[in-house]
Amino acid sequence: MEQRVMEKKDVKSFIAELIKLYPAVYGPVAKGKSVVFDRLKDAGEAKFSYTRSILPPKKYLMPQQECIMKFDMPPNPKAESVVEFEDQVIVGVHPCDIRAIKLLDMIMNGGNPDDNYNKRRGHTVIIGIDCVPDQYCYCSSVMDLRCTDGFDIFLTDLGDQVLVDVLTEKGKEVISKIETKPASSTHLKKQDELLEAKKKLFTAKFTGPAQLLPLELEGQWEAPVWEDMGKKCLSCGQCVLVCPTCYCFDVTDELALSMKKGDRVRKWDGCQLAGFAYVGSGENFREEPGARVRHRYHRKFKYHVDSHSMTFCTGCGRCWVHCPVEINLVEISNRIFKREAECKA
């Protein structure tokens, strides 16, 4: 990895240059009191001092809704798959969302690679940026704070200057558009200090190591925490719809009003919605909200850890912020750790 430095005052012209060079540049912009990723028309629109966007930037790799096939109905039936993509830059991506994209890269290249995702991913440049946690952030409990891969370049605000970690060829090309200097040991030391200081800012923490949760979960299938959360859960599905690592979708065929042709559409879906596990025979194999909460938790902290050795929660805090009844994975995790501790005592 190459490390360079740019003047902070040059960031704006850097973004402006990217907007000129790439068909699409996306970044964090204000929406009401919140922030969303949106197309940047002007470098000044970007709001880099944000905590978290409503939806994660994953939406540019796997849109909320996309047409995956166009078809004609009989008598001349025809079907053609659709993959829409363009060269795009996502700027201002936080470490939690970078990690989430890395996890999605793994999933989307598993047994049955997802062409639509992979085409978009291949045409995407990711520019990461360091951040300051709030009371809902808990990435320090589930991942390494130092962002070492999953991006093309990563920016760390050092005050008057910005440290630029350049990881990939695409990153080198992007950074060549602006004047930078090689980073000195002083710059790197400052970055280390900032990371140390950041560690102290987290108020939401797991009481045990996240990597141990697959073991801790053994024997806790019937733990009271699931029913307690199930009683509170409204099954509104927001937690899974805002999650940067969730990738479940539903596929429907939408006929044009002419009834002669149509689109096959995939749309985000999620396991916390009551109908997600409802099957053709009329059964719902996760009928109780508590069973759904438990399933989601195991998807984040057990099943994928067993199969991919990675925790599928990045601690971004979106599910917590959006849950109308304040269900959060920190509380659940700590109850999982706690009951184990009681049993051992």
């Binding site: 929406k31 009401g32 009191k33 919140s34 969303v36 409503i54 939806l55 939406k59 909320q64 809704q65 409204l234 099954s235 509104c236 599905g237 927001q238 719809l241 805002v242 749309k267 985000w268 919605l273 009551a274 109908g275 912020v321 959006h322 109308p324």
Partner: peptide, 20 residues
């Protein structure tokens, strides 16, 4: 449409009114 309004609301990336 046996799913909550929140589903389409989040997919449109509205600011959740409950959060404000």
């Amino acid at each position: 449409h046996d799913y909550p309004v929140c589903q389409e609301c989040r997919l449109r990336e509205n600011e959740c009114l409950l959060t404000v």
